[in-house]
Design a protein around this nucleic acid. Structure first.
Lengths: 196, 196
DNA sequence: ATAATTATTGACTATAAACTCATTGACTAC
DNA sequence: GTAGTCAATGAGTTTATAGTCAATAATTAT
């Protein structure tokens, strides 16, 4: 079932729309990008968008889900190698940096998105939390990190990173906040949690 | 110039609209609340809104500015008494808790707001930062808190608090996250930054 | 008391954006 | 080669909501 030429074409068109959507959502916002803008970016007619996604919300959900898959896999790749807390946090930063624009849109508009989309964000956090928790527990046992509630260690870290992302236009206008401040944040947070 | 009866009425109408706007924005979102909804909540005709605020954006700006004034003054009152870092953070939490709904909307929709509105948010952060910095520097000198960059101490704290606010519907559905977790957050952050 | 002023009204207009569907023409099946 | 299928089109429809303005009625000034 590799499909006829026609089916292949259709699949490609759908893919073009989805990629254009992901790009436009990252550039113009998840809740503020129009279907017309996506159609233009994908070089298809406006109606074509609805031939592939029955509603705007479905397209948004599909784009977010696709994004979630990609970043999630990348986070697994990067953090899966094991390593200490510092390495896991560095891996997390690296994964987010690679997808900074879209990820920033997700966290800054999360409250305005349909539930399905928010669940994708929760899934991404779960992945990050999973890897971090393991490393933190190990280091607490080893005595290199303070005995702290693991969920708070995670929330403190994510909160700090999200704060910089949410204010990226102030902290690093036109550039990547994480490239600019990632190392400093990592350094700071490690200083806070490590045992002395 | 205390004004005639007519001027007084007009002022009151404007005030009713502004109060209704602040309430509706907190309930339904800053970027998603319609002028019709505000008119209904204020018990005035739709057209009356525009007799007092020439555009929707102007009304939003006015509401945010008014909110900014109130919370800012409250933060000053609460933190101005001096006290150590713990007291200043507790005061900050208290001020935010008193205005949790609207404040949460502000931080979760900030990126979608006009520049003027974002400046109000920056002003609020400045107030909090001012009081905290003073207390932190004092305690670092006294040796009760680790020698850390003051701006990172602030950003770490605000990031943590904002993370809980932004996910309040998950952490404390239907209630106040800060009432529920504020103490835990304060306790955790003090543990992190205090000298040992 | 009367005229002028003006705050308020709500029906109306304008606009943007999501979504529809008859038409077109390239591909598929026979 | 021809008939049938269907992906793509884009003009048209619908809907939501911001913003307008002539009319109304209450207040103020003379």
């Amino acid at each position: 079932m590799p499909g006829t030429k026609r089916q292949e074409q259709k699949k490609q068109t759908r893919s073009r729309i989805l990629e254009a959507a992901i790009e436009q959502f990252a550039k113009q916002g998840l809740t503020t990008t129009s279907t017309v803008a996506i159609a233009e970016a994908a070089h298809v007619a406006h109606g074509t968008v609805f031939a592939h996604f029955s509603t705007q919300e479905e397209l948004l959900s599909a784009a977010i889900e696709e994004f979630g898959k990609r970043i999630n896999q990348r986070l697994h790749e990067l953090a899966g190698a094991g390593g200490g807390v510092r390495e896991v946090l560095a891996a997390h930063l690296k994964g987010l940096t690679e997808h900074e624009a879209f990820y920033t849109r997700m966290i800054t508009e999360a409250r305005l998105l349909p539930e399905e989309a928010r669940n994708t964000l929760i899934m991404i956090q779960s992945t990050a939390s999973f890897h971090l928790s393991e490393a933190v527990e190990k280091e607490i046992t080893a005595g290199s990190i303070q005995p702290l509630p693991v969920h708070l260690v995670f929330n403190g870290w994510v909160g700090l990173v999200h704060y910089y992302l949410a204010n990226s236009d102030l902290f690093a206008p036109g550039g990547s906040v994480l490239e600019r401040y990632g190392h400093e944040l990592l350094q700071y947070y490690m200083t806070l949690i490590k045992a002395r």
